[in-house]
Design a binder for these strands. Structure first.
Length: 618
DNA sequence: GCAAGGTC
């Protein structure tokens, strides 16, 4: 019997289907000489400190540097505390039995670093010694799967990939566990003060933005505004320059030749510029962009959106949700017309679905090279009925985005009129000529700048128009907005792009901080630790969060660059570089940060404002 | 009690 092991049940089912294996057994599918089984993501994790004898949180244990890491079954939280997840235990037993009977093991976990780790941890935990082959495919179509099985690779081809995954895993444990205990212990251990490669830079981003806003000093500046009349159609123009000094603005204000000052036609039209502007449709959704849309439109948290989406996925209504790709391959594209046809009876989208069947589809989201482990999120075409309001809302965002992505571009006409009257003024207007993809949601929620006119009257260069009103505007510069879940997710995705060091920036070019699958839980962790709170839609640091930030802000653990450095080294390991070098670097770093935090944490209590900590202390 | 990673 040949055993195929996938990362998750949906993939195992897909593979079994291609082979025509149909006998459903407990925990696997059998047929045609194969058994298709699965994991549920990581079944095993690095064992916690107490399993190496580090019982309790004690200064003398630090840094904890296990000689050899152990693996432990994934835990779930119950009333009695953390226990082995029974579902995981059961699945491991099934896998063990299948491996025992196997004549051949075929690894079909996702084609990437973590997919490799998921399998290897199982394999080593079960002490399996049989050789294995690797299925390596980047598309889940029948043809790609068949081709992949014709081209199975020797399992050992991926040993270096496993090495890099293993290093990632152990390094996160070493740095995270030690830094967390060091800070907690030295701060008096009243509560858990967690730190980690991903959560701490995320906290730092939220805190530094908050402080930037808090310390922001608004600057007053002045602008001039005039209203012109073109045969009864009124439009507004704003001075090209803004002024720091009021006197300067007042001097030019006096020079405006408006009606009240005795000028019947004081607005000289210097120039009229009308340009079409084309907006291509947005790309299909990946998890992050969908979480952002759901947060903006519905106020859902990243975590809520992920769980609603997981639910839709388990009901087979949408494709795999934790994807980082916003593209599909040509094979999937071939099925899009069918999917669009099925939307025809949708109450909101039916009309646009009908329209799309009459035109050729936009292929902006079609690019097989940009499909990684999973393609962009799509509906499956199964009938969706009786969904809860929240689930329906998410489902509609998936369907709506599909229609948008394959729709036509939106064509706007942007007009700019330049007026002279003592000084220069411009009037801007935007008119949608052809809504294209924007007709799907029809909510045209483009932020309108307040100086924008919805539409401008026909005006010709050289014309003279009456100025019916003039105003001196006193304005203030505004700080950046506080992070909310949508803007934070975006910032996590792009955090690598702001790194100055070119190599580190390159190392993070397709990762950012965290992964699509983990970002929602990072936000939740920071909330559980009482580092941040949700205030309306904003994520605001607490005094505890700010105090932790203050201790670590200049340390490497608070910088996105740390991930960049690791990614660079891990990629080198994947291509064959020494593992021992990296490991000893991480050990050194663990020692350093542990000692620094053991010393620094003592100052942390002073930094917390009285209202959070001393109340509890009293 | 603690990381980050994956998923039901």
């Amino acid at each position: 019997m040949k055993i195929v092991i996938a990362e998750k049940p949906s993939v195992a089912r897909e593979l079994a289907k291609v082979f025509g294996a149909t006998t459903k057994k407990n925990g696997y599918i059998e047929g045609k000489g194969y058994s298709f089984t699965w994991a549920f993501g990581h079944l095993l994790q690095l064992a916690p400190p107490q399993e190496y004898g580090f019982i309790g949180w004690r200064r003398q244990h630090l840094p904890m540097l296990p000689k050899k890491f152990k693996l432990a079954i994934r835990k779930i939280k119950t009333k009695e505390g953390f226990v082995d997840d029974p579902a995981v235990k059961k699945q491991l037993d099934i896998i063990r039995q299948l491996f025992d009977e196997a004549t051949e093991i075929i690894v079909a976990t996702d084609a990437g670093r973590e997919g490799e780790l998921i399998f290897r941890y199982i394999y080593y935990y079960l002490k399996c010694k049989k050789p294995f082959k690797r299925l390596w495919i980047s598309s889940q179509t029948d043809e790609a799967i068949k081709e992949g099985f014709r081209n199975l690779k020797p399992g050992t081809d991926y040993d270096t990939l496993f090495n890099s995954a293993h290093c990632r895993s152990e390094s996160d444990w070493l740095v995270g566990m030690n830094a967390t205990q060091a800070l907690s212990i030295s701060a008096g251990a009243r509560s858990v003060l967690s730190l980690g490669r991903v959560q701490t830079p995320t906290l730092a981003m939220i805190c530094s933005r908050y402080l930037e806003i808090k310390n922001f000093v608004p600057q007053t500046y002045y602008q001039l505004s005039i209203q012109l009349d073109q045969q009864g159609q009124i439009f507004k123009a704003i001075s090209v320059n803004s002024f720091d000094k009021k006197e300067e603005a007042e001097a030019l204000f006096e020079k405006i030749e408006d009606l009240k000052s005795g000028f019947p036609n004081g607005g000289h039209i210097l120039d009229v510029e009308a340009k079409p502007r084309k907006e291509p449709p947005p790309l299909l959704h990946d998890l992050s962009s969908l979480q952002q849309e759901a947060n903006k439109k519905k106020g859902f948290t990243a975590d809520q959106t992920l769980s609603l989406l997981q639910n839709l996925y388990e009901s087979k209504l949408v494709s795999y949700p934790r994807t980082g790709s916003r593209y599909i391959g040509d094979d999937i594209f071939a099925g899009i017309p069918d999917l669009i046809r099925k939307v025809s009876d949708h109450p909101d989208f039916g009309k646009q679905a009908d329209f799309l069947q009459t035109v050729s589809l936009n292929k902006r989201s079609v690019n097989a090279k940009k499909v990684t482990d999973h393609h962009a999120i799509l509906p499956t075409g199964e009938n969706a009925y009786g969904l809860s309001a929240d689930k329906q809302a998410i489902y509609d965002m998936v369907v709506g985005r599909m229609l948008e992505a394959f729709h036509q571009e939106c064509v706007k006409e942007v007009t700019k009129i330049t007026v002279e009257s003592g000084s220069l003024f411009t009037a801007n207007g935007t008119v949608i000529r052809s809504a294209g993809w924007r007709s799907v949601w029809n909510d045209n929620e483009e932020e309108k700048k307040d100086e924008d006119n919805p539409s401008l009257p026909k005006v010709k260069k050289g014309e003279l128009l009456p100025i019916i009103e003039k105003q001196l505007l006193e304005k203030q510069t505004k700080p950046k907005a506080m992070y909310n879940e949508a803007s934070l997710l975006k910032a996590l995705e792009t955090s690598g792009k702001e790194i100055e060091d070119e190599e580190l920036r390159y190392a993070m070019k397709d990762t950012g901080l965290g992964t699509p699958a983990t970002r929602a839980s990072i936000i939740e962790t920071l909330i559980t630790r009482e580092y941040i709170i949700r205030e309306k839609r904003n994520l605001v640091p607490t005094s505890k969060g700010l105090a932790v930030y203050d201790v670590v802000k200049d340390q490497k653990i608070a910088q996105a660059e740390l991930t960049g450095q690791w990614e660079k080294r891990l990629e080198e390991i994947r291509t064959g570089a020494s593992v021992t070098d990296f490991k000893s670097e991480i050990t050194d770093y663990t020692r350093t940060i542990t000692n620094e935090l053991l010393a620094a944490g003592a100052t942390l209590l002073d930094k917390m404002s009285p209202k959070t900590e001393s109340v509890k202390a009293g």
